[in-house]
Design a protein around this nucleic acid. Structure first.
Lengths: 311, 311
DNA sequence: ACCTTTTTTTGTCCTGGACAATATGATTAC
DNA sequence: GTAATCATATTGTCCAGGACAAAAAAAGGT
């Protein structure tokens, strides 16, 4: 059921990937990988003794860069045959050279030194000093962004990112459970669609909503649309909020939102937010796109003014 | 990028799915769906005007049942041509009568009634009353088991399970972060292999280890073996602990443990635990199989006696 | 400058063959 | 009776290369 990802390379450290692993880790479908190879000549994986594609590390990394640039608006045909260095330069151009603000840099530095204790304490201190809302809306957002950048630049290892994710989850979940009140209206169902695995964005939203006094029903990541539909009456929620990280395609996010809108009764609101939707031009009918945490607070306030008196 | 899922069926309410939507929501790959059709004659989707598969609701639902039963051990070829009713009966048969102990039943009942507040409070009360170790080793273990059973019997919806998982995570992560001491030897790296997505088991272990005074470096789920290898020197750990839920094959778990053993230097211990390994006969050379939380505490104690004086 | 139509690009779906990985069943050894 | 070993059957994933719809870009018209 589970195929081996790294087939014990003779040269240790030079991992290789089969097509399923590449699909999983780059988000490019097997069909796309094959058709690119046919059309553009890249990627050009080796073959194992049974003719199956074996992608070397370098090609894997270039594919990740391509995915990123395409998400950012480049066309595959224009960039696919440029060198990895040229692509890296394009990525660098994207964010014009900036370096993270000092407070963020300090925290990232602790992560890079693998000082888990110091890292944890720095996060907790930032939370104490700034309060939950500011911590989430500014610090965690910035950390996500800069750690993503550092990962692209190869400065952060996968396991560092895993560790970061775990610590942030600990802190956010701790904040959520520590909220004193029970939360009143509106009742908000919070989840993401299948394919969207990032949980931190969801937790950030949950923490802020809970702090603002809404009653959250958090289902974690990757709930199929049909199950979201079924959960709405079961938990009697007023709003369904979906999170889409920038790993998700904008069009896929919009499609999902429209699909859900068709399934839910009109008096249930749908809110969508997250990196994938930041650059969306027009919002689908009957869906509210939230581009910042402030947007979310306004949406909450608006709901309370418009809807709450009804009861 | 993702094509429309529901192509405005003439008959409203009877949703239809294209192959991508079926893949997303059942977890069965497009290749599998096509090969089943070719081999067994099911599913037998309609075609749209361009010869593309269109799955009606009933087939979609039967596919979900099939997926469920296959995960539980049935073979596709034996069950794929039975009626949906027969399949539902098979699912019901799965639970061999027994009912959970009263304390567990009460908590599950709150979940089934979608009383999120009451559910949360019941968990917190159990934790207070029993203490962390007993709560994890007894109550959470039992809840995992019985909720799994109830899900198979169709009594618990997917979203209920999602909600359960979220609440347990909140509580466990809260316990972890609330630990007063900072943890000393041994330093334990805690994660699971790719394919093993269950995070609750990992959190249970982390909570207990932290309570026992070990220093945990938790990487969350699904760390590729090569990255575990690289993380060991980076975080200077003494022990690598891996968790395998019963969704994992026993042989896959053992293979993974052996592979890791070959990559790590001999003075790093490897511990493996979780449902997949409960019935393992012989333990691989150089690996410690932990079949209970007590086993884990003994292993910890043993390590401290044997290894700690060295420093 | 803005809207509409044509052209190009790009991703997904298709068929049907092949074969490795996994599970099952038979056989032998303890 | 239980456990290990091997043969056979089942099942999922991969492959090639053709086709075409959806999306984007370019061209044209007002």
């Amino acid at each position: 059921m589970i195929t081996t990802t790294n087939t014990a390379p003779a040269d240790p450290g030079a991992a290789t990937y089969n097509i399923a692993a590449v699909e999983r880790d780059t988000g490019l479908s097997k069909d796309t990988l094959r058709v690119w190879e046919r059309r553009y000549g890249f990627p050009a994986p080796d073959r194992d003794q049974h003719h199956e594609r074996v992608y070397p590390q370098a090609q894997f990394e270039k594919l990740r860069l391509l995915r990123l640039l395409i998400d950012y608006g480049h066309r595959p045909g224009k960039i696919i045959n440029q060198s990895a260095e040229a692509l890296a330069r394009l990525v660098a151009e994207r964010t014009p050279g900036q370096s993270p603000p000092a407070e963020i840099a300090v925290i990232i530095d602790l992560l890079l030194r693998h000082d888990t204790e110091g890292f944890r304490n720095a996060l907790l201190q930032a939370l104490m000093k700034q309060g939950l809302l500011h911590f989430v809306a500014e610090t965690v957002t910035a950390l996500n962004h800069w750690i993503g950048e550092a990962w692209l630049a190869g400065k952060v290892a996968i396991f560092d990112e895993h560790l970061y994710s775990e610590h942030i989850q600990n802190i956010l979940r701790n904040s959520i459970i520590a909220q004193p009140g029970r939360g009143s209206a509106p009742r908000v169902l919070l989840t993401s669609l299948p394919g969207e695995k990032h949980r931190i964005g969801l937790l950030m939203v949950e923490a802020v909503l809970t702090a603002e006094g809404a009653a959250c029903v958090a289902l974690g990541a990757e709930t199929p649309i049909i199950d979201i539909k079924n959960a709405v009456p079961a938990y009697d929620v007023d709003v369904v909020a979906l999170s889409f990280s920038s790993a998700f395609t904008q069009s896929a996010a919009l499609t999902g939102l429209v699909e859900l809108r068709e399934l839910l009764s009109g008096n249930i609101e749908i809110w969508g937010g997250g990196g994938a939707l930041l650059r969306a031009r027009k919002t689908p009918q009957g869906v509210l796109l939230l581009r910042s945490f402030d947007d979310m607070r306004y949406a909450l306030e608006r709901w309370r003014i418009e809807r709450a008196p009804a009861t």
